[in-house]
């Protein structure tokens, strides 16, 4: 590794960050023991932290709620003779009343925790029915756009004011021509390994959830939002959220949606892919409802034949 000069310090540190993310991901995939260890560490903290302070592992919290739901009316007795006698008399004095009250509280807690368990089982069965977790790896990930799409996007946004973000950037195919044209642009993709080559070649690509990145954007933060890859599998509700958040994030700017048409998918892809996805025409309809000026721009890519370009100005 050569030490960078001051002018490319940001590119250098971005590259290091991407390499770290990718290395962590590689180690997790390579070593199942590492994942087990992470779960153990998280579990250890959940066990000592109060409810609500740690973790999102519902099952662990349910176990904890189960244990805490039973109030024990028997106060522990000390071993020193005086204290033991004192506590013994206090216990006799209040036992009859506390027992009556705690029996009722325990019964309520018991019903509530059983109810929570039932909810948990029901959610699990719904997840199983949707089979979201299981089918993720059965079909190939959506391929990246080709250079023709990238050039088309770059020509659409060439003279655009403000920063451009490419959500679902993969290795940076859509980012490269914009970067080369001097546009302030960065990409976001959930796959830390996929972005690594692009980062190493000097692009500003960041590992992260594209939808969360968009949701966290300030109003008018970007001049343009380009969404690719992750938008291919979105259902109507999630797509509508993307439309609303993208419009807020660009203010008077432009949103470009690069997605294939679900009708073009082969039967296996259509049946096994997690989400069905929306066609460019439907995306155009969603943006059109907001008052944006929408164009459908043809490209030479046989899969991404049409780009949806929504202008908010």
């Amino acid at each position: 590794m050569t030490q960078p000069n001051a002018t490319d310090s940001q590119a250098y540190i971005n590259r290091v960050r991407a390499e770290i993310e990718a290395e962590a991901e590689t180690r997790r995939r390579r070593d199942p023991e590492l994942q087990r260890q992470e779960r153990e560490i998280e579990r250890a903290w959940i066990e000592v932290a109060p409810p609500g302070a740690a973790g999102s592992q519902g099952e662990l919290l349910l176990d904890r709620a189960d244990r805490l739901s039973m109030i024990d009316v028997d106060a522990p007795l000390g071993t020193k003779p005086g204290i033991r006698q004192l506590k013994g008399s206090i216990r006799k004095g209040v036992y009859w009343y506390l027992r009556y009250v705690t029996d009722q509280v325990n019964a309520l807690n018991n019903v509530l925790t059983r109810l929570l368990r039932r909810f948990d089982e029901r959610i699990s069965s719904l997840e199983d029915a949707a089979a979201v977790a299981d089918v993720g790896g059965l079909v190939d990930p959506v391929p990246e756009p080709d250079g023709a799409v990238a050039d088309t996007v770059a020509s659409i946004l060439a003279d655009h004011a403000g920063r451009v973000v490419v959500l679902g950037c993969g290795s940076g195919v859509l980012v490269r021509p914009l970067h080369d044209a001097g546009v302030a642009v960065h990409g976001v993709d959930v796959d830390a390994l996929a972005i690594l080559p692009g980062v190493r070649s000097g692009l500003d690509l960041r590992a992260g959830e594209p939808a969360s990145h968009l949701a966290a954007a300030r109003a008018g933060e970007f001049g343009a939002v380009v969404a690719a890859g992750f938008v291919e599998d979105l259902g109507p509700a999630a797509a509508q959220r993307v439309v609303e958040q993208a419009i807020a994030a660009v203010g008077n700017g432009t949103v470009v949606i690069a997605t294939g048409d679900p009708a073009d998918r082969d039967v296996i892809d259509r049946e096994l892919r997690v989400g069905r996805g929306l066609s460019p025409a439907t995306w155009a309809y969603l943006f059109g409802r907001t008052g944006a000026t929408v164009d459908l721009v043809e490209t030479a890519d046989p899969r991404l034949r049409t780009l949806v370009v929504a202008r908010l100005a």
């Binding site: 940001q10 540190i13 993310e21 290395e23 962590a24 992470e38």
Partner: peptide
């Protein structure tokens, strides 16, 4: 840009970053 900023602070991710800083002299 004068430090390593992490978007994910899961134990493995942070540990990899720390290991990198501890072992990469440059």
């Amino acid at each position: 840009d004068a430090g390593i900023l992490l978007d994910d602070k899961s134990p493995t991710n942070v540990a990899v970053a720390l290991e990198r800083v501890l072992t990469d002299c440059e």
